[in-house]
């Protein structure tokens, strides 16, 4: 298994939207490298024929009827918003695509 480099941490931070400081990059690189080294042990046991378990419960088809329930009021929905304008969540300029 490849170790976790400083560059890798920078990439993970971008994907995770964390504006890490230079110091943190070094710090986390060391720690994450240690942790990944330790958890990589999972590769030792699980063989091809072992099915994965993504969830502890064997349930299927849990659904609800298509019936309308009361929504929050716009005041409730917006109460915690950092900024509001025209009854909408006001957010800074979005750089992505429209």
């Amino acid at each position: 298994m490849p170790g976790i480099t400083r560059e890798e941490v920078a990439h993970l931070a971008r994907l995770s939207r964390l504006e890490l400081s230079e110091k943190e990059l070094d710090h986390f690189a060391t720690q994450l490298d240690d942790i990944v080294g330790a958890v990589a042990r999972v590769g030792e046991v699980a063989a091809e024929d072992v099915p994965p378990t993504s969830h502890p419960l064997p349930l299927t088809n849990v659904m609800r009827a298509d019936e309308v329930r009361p929504s929050l009021t716009p005041e409730q929905a917006l109460a915690a918003a950092p900024a509001v304008e025209e009854q909408r969540f006001r957010v800074p300029q979005i750089l992505g695509e429209d």
């Binding site: 019936e67 309308v68 929504s71 716009p74 909408r88």
Partner: peptide
């Protein structure tokens, strides 16, 4: 269970 009806007030159909 929020309604999908069109034309509602902004953020009035959220939970």
């Amino acid at each position: 269970g929020c309604t999908t009806a069109l034309g509602g007030d902004a953020n009035a159909q959220t939970c």
